[in-house]
Write a protein that binds this DNA or RNA. Structure first.
Lengths: 348, 348
DNA sequence: ATCCTTTCTGTGAACGTTTTCAGAAAACGT
DNA sequence: ACGTTTTCTGAAAACGTTCACAGAAAGGAT
């Protein structure tokens, strides 16, 4: 490091400095046997002396491997994605891969990114794009490019890891029923996402099983964002025979709903119980703390990485789908129905 | 796309398919003039037909540019970093660069990452590492590698963009003084960070200017994490002559403090006013909503990118430091001091 | 001495691009 | 018909590595 500062130092500079051929330097770099200890030492010294750092592009051009795992996400705004990334990141840290994060704000550009990855930037790709995956599956499968869809329901289109959204919705309704609620409003998520559809189906299934009111007016459409939660809750509260509890398909909308409920002059949970979905960090922070369905997001990230590694090892492995269990986190936003005997849960 | 699926398709395959030399294919790829329209069309067809996608490693090996901007962060856990990244990301999206995110959990590995970047993976590097930057400056400056430290106070060590932490702390105290408070507790941030030191200095300066109590017991040490906020607040509340307001060096610690205050049976803001710093998303969500000092985190990310681009263009440009203004966001966690006439602010 | 291993080292090709250079083909003015 | 410019195209080198190969040096056995 004590020499003057060349902008770039290659294996050849090091070789010259150490008085050996560049192949020998490469050998030292890669810890190959059959290098005379004395030579190795001289090379190591030169390496350190010149402050050599390998050019990864050249290396991976030659070897065909980049030791990178790509991660394609829509955006980073939501804490939800952050949690998945934390898991991915933690798992990757235990391997000798690096993480390459790409965000795509415009849906239109996504396939282009995918193309880049397939083009050798990364050895495998994790896609956290809850929307329609069809535009990607073509190139990905055609090239046998290792990839895993995260937070996506499995199908024959590609390997995936997801959460049990259907079961989670049932858990939520079961819980509300156990508190005596019989008229439960539901605020849907975005219905172009599998998670949105699954949570709705879970709600419907549970409502049917318990023989609850299945008034279609009890289902208000949202899109997973807080404002629609607010609006949907307003609609539910305006109903002539309004529900006694509201189940929102995610926490953000539950927060919006809580706001609307308070604006209507009602108390939570005394006058209206609320359940969310996701267990975002804020859920524990709001007041009253939100009862919600936890998705094991971090674990989802970890599992996705593990799965991807198996595909990198063997790209021909058949598609696998892992579904992670969801569970109920009871906090303070629900109360037993007043004037109604607490009743046991009918099983669903 | 309708052919069978070769694992890899190069410029040469395309050339063969189109019946031209691979140099011509390259020309078409790069939109160079002097390609006969008819040839261009044939090549384009072949390109599309085979589903060609460029190998970026090869390209950047040849050109010496990667069109990537590296982003080095400690971890993604905190929403704070997420906001900066959003800004970075948004700004990069407007250029023809891509973002390459690296996280480093172990401080020890950071210089190694830096080496990778310098090694050609990216054309420039953004470092969001609030700790001591000395281990990085050496290699970075020696190689004239374009880089910017984000959320760091400028120095002669390298270019940086940061926020006015000192001024922000003064704003907070000014506000509390305007509400009549004269005995104000302070919970410090991590004092090995410049932001921690600057906020403390701002507090001290404001206390001196207003001639407030400067009892050393009013300063309790924290480390920016919620638990220390809780502990520090307990210490402040246990004081024989306890403060009437608490200013925490970040929101997370303010949340911890709020918890401690409530546990002590006091009401916020009636019995104790609280001010935070950062304006994290949760600040508006907690109850009562937290009055805090806003840092323009997203803007910080954007500015950092803009600065970095100038260094990529001209690596010799002298170090620049941009400081962004902070401002006060008044919510519901502060109240005028009871039994004290509301008094006008002395200027600081 | 001679021959075989074993250990060590250098030469040169290859990875997939871009880019320089030179030359062919077309277009144009005379 | 002929130069001259302009448009087009291909051959070959280069970027910084890894790796197969061949050959040199050293060490043992005969």
């Amino acid at each position: 490091m004590n020499h003057s500062a060349p902008t770039k130092v290659t294996i050849i500079d090091v070789a010259r400095e150490a008085g050996v051929s560049y192949a020998t330097v490469s050998r030292v770099l890669n810890d190959e046997p059959y290098v005379k200890p004395e030579t190795r030492e001289r090379v190591t010294a030169a390496l350190h002396d010149l402050g050599y750092v390998a050019n990864r592009q050249a290396r991976s051009l030659r070897t065909g491997r980049s030791q990178m795992i790509g991660l394609l996400v829509r955006d980073l705004g939501t804490g939800y994605i952050g949690q998945i990334i934390s898991g991915v990141d933690a798992e990757i840290a235990e391997t000798d891969f690096e993480m390459l994060l790409f965000t795509t704000h415009h849906q239109a550009r996504e396939p282009e990114y995918v193309a880049n990855f397939v083009g050798g930037m990364a050895d495998g790709l994790l896609l956290i794009l809850p929307h329609n995956i069809d535009p990607y599956t073509g190139l990905l499968n055609q090239r046998r490019y290792p990839h895993v869809f995260v937070d996506y329901k499995g199908s024959d289109k590609g390997p995936a890891v997801g959460a049990d959204n259907y079961g989670g919705a049932i858990l939520a309704i079961d819980y509300l029923v156990s508190l005596g609620h019989r008229r439960i409003g539901f605020i849907t998520g975005a219905l172009d996402l599998t998670s949105g559809v699954d949570r709705l189906n879970g709600y419907r299934q549970a409502v049917a099983c318990h023989g609850l009111d299945d008034d279609p007016a009890l289902v208000a459409e949202g899109d997973y964002h807080q404002p629609t939660g607010h609006a949907a809750a307003q609609a539910l509260l305006a109903l002539p025979n309004r529900p006694t509890a509201i189940f929102a398909a995610n926490d953000a909308m539950a927060f919006g709903a809580m706001e609307a409920i308070r604006e209507a002059g009602l108390r939570i949970p005394e006058d209206m119980s609320v359940v969310g979905f996701d267990d975002t960090p804020q859920a524990a922070g709001v007041s009253p703390a939100l009862t919600t369905i936890r998705q094991p997001l971090e674990d989802m990230g970890r599992q996705a990485v593990q799965m991807l590694l198996t595909y990198i090892e063997d790209p021909e492995r058949p598609f696998e789908y892992r579904e992670l269990a969801t569970d109920l986190v009871v906090r303070d936003s629900c109360a037993p129905l007043r004037n109604a005997p607490r009743q046991a849960t009918a099983n669903s």
